[in-house]
Every structure is written in structure tokens, then in C-alpha cells.
């Protein structure tokens, strides 16, 4: 939200710190969580290893559902990192919202369109890059824009933009709306003192629970669509 945006210019580049700080926090949480889970790796997995192996199996399953195995193997790490990062990012704002002096410091990084647009931009650039790398620019162009029917070319071009926007804005919209409602319930809780504070607690609780669900689904959807877009670029239709 702009009222809390904390914009700082560094080397003439505008950084929105109320977006960057939670991103950094998310990354740190993700790293330490997975670092902790992946200690003492053994052939016979212990409890923590089971958790991380389940996660890896899950994201590998996403990739496997979209691409053949030998092609998809390269994207396991990307899917894994993307999924865990977005998942934690979605949950961060549910647990912690920090606003001081009208400047937001902690919220879900994914409740800011810049974040999701950046991520979508990144993965789609990667997809296009891999397409060019695999088929050459001509092959890539033909595969992406002229197949199956050449006269759909304008639609194909448009589709690339809509892919990008829908991928980013779907995630952003879901998480942002969730946070808006959380804040609204909080406002309700503080508006009439104790009379509204107590009934707002279960409301907030229910909405948080639902948001956890939404956050998980959106992380899954984002990763799945990313893999679909990549596979469209690296495989001949």
C-alpha cells in the first residue's frame, strides 16, 4: 500500500524498502528453515529430512506433471525455490504486520505487485531464453508465435503479455486482498473498544486460516504455471 511505502533512492534507483525488507526476511527464513531441515542427511531419512524430501518430491511432482523427466530435471531446483519462497512470502504477512510512522516494514512481499511482477518477469524471461537457446531464434519464433496456425500471430504475441500479467496479478491479487481483509478486521477490532475486539478475534482467526490455504494454493499455482510456460517454450508443439 502506498501510504506505507518507504521509498529510498540508492544510486538513483528507487527502492521500495517496505517491499524489499519483507522480501529479505522471507529469503532469510526460507534459507534457515531449509538449512535446518537439511542437516545430517542420511540414507535412512530422519524426521527433518523427511520433511524436506517430501517438499522436494512435491515440487518435483509439479515439474514432472508438465514436462518429461529428462527435460524437467533441470527445473527441479527452480520449482523448489520458487515454491518455498512464495509460500513463505504468502504466510509472512499473515503472522506479522509491522507499520511504524505510516511506513510499512513487514507484510507479505507478494502483496505488492512489484514483487510478483518481478518474479513473473524473471521466470518468463527464463522461459523465452531457454526457448531461444534450444531452437535458435528462428525455431523459437516459429514455435512460440506461428504454431499451430500462423495467422494467430497477433493473438500469440498478446498471449505472452497476458501470461505475464495474469501470472503476476493472480498471486498479487489473492495475497493483497487477503491482507486488506486482515487489516479491515483489525480496524473493526480497534474501532469500538472491547465490544468489537473480542468478536473480531475469531473472525481474524478464520480469515488467517483461510489465507494460509489461499497462500498455499497460490504458491502451487504459480509454480505450476511457471513450469507450463517454460515447457511451452522448450518443447515443440
Amino acid at each position: 500500500m502506498n501510504e506505507g511505502a518507504y521509498v529510498q533512492k540508492l544510486f538513483g534507483i528507487p527502492f521500495n524498502l517496505s517491499n524489499d525488507i519483507p522480501g529479505l526476511i522471507t529469503a532469510v527464513i526460507v534459507f534457515f528453515l531449509l538449512f535446518w531441515l537439511s542437516r545430517s542427511i542420511q540414507l535412512r531419512p530422519n524426521k527433518r529430512q523427511n520433511v524436506i524430501e517430501w517438499l522436494i518430491d512435491f515440487t518435483n511432482g509439479i515439474v514432472k506433471g508438465v514436462m518429461p523427466d529428462e527435460e524437467g530435471k533441470r527445473f527441479g531446483l527452480l520449482a523448489f525455490t520458487l515454491f518455498v519462497f512464495i509460500f513463505i512470502a504468502n504466510q509472512l504477512g499473515l503472522m506479522l504486520q509491522l507499520t511504524a510512522n505510516d511506513k510499512s516494514y513487514i507484510s507479505s512481499p507478494t502483496s505488492n505487485a512489484m514483487t510478483t511482477l518481478s518474479l513473473a518477469f524473471m521466470v518468463l524471461m527464463l522461459a523465452h531464453f531457454l526457448g531461444v537457446k534450444k531452437f535458435g531464434f528462428k525455431g523459437y519464433f516459429k514455435n512460440t508465435y506461428l504454431s499451430p496456425i500462423p495467422f494467430l500471430f497477433p493473438l500469440s504475441v498478446l498471449e505472452e503479455f497476458t501470461n505475464f500479467l495474469t501470472l503476476a496479478l493472480r498471486l498479487y491479487g489473492n495475497i493483497y486482498s487477503g491482507e486488506v481483509l486482515l487489516k479491515l478486521i483489525y480496524k473493526l477490532a480497534t474501532s469500538f473498544g472491547i465490544a468489537s475486539f473480542i468478536p473480531a478475534i475469531p473472525l481474524e482467526l478464520i480469515w488467517q486460516g483461510f489465507s494460509v490455504f489461499i497462500g498455499s494454493i497460490q504458491a502451487y499455482v504459480f509454480v505450476t504455471l511457471t513450469m507450463v510456460y517454460i515447457s511451452q517454450k522448450v518443447e515443440k508443439e
Partner: peptide, 20 residues
Amino acid sequence: VQWGDTIFYLVLFIVLMALL
């Protein structure tokens, strides 16, 4: 637009991926 965020997230994500 705070386009620095894009750079920030790109770098952040790539570093995170490498570390993981």
C-alpha cells in the same frame, strides 16, 4: 515505479537459489 525492487528480487532470488 520503484523498479529497484525488480533488481532486488532478481538478485535475492538468484542468491537464495544458489544458497539452497
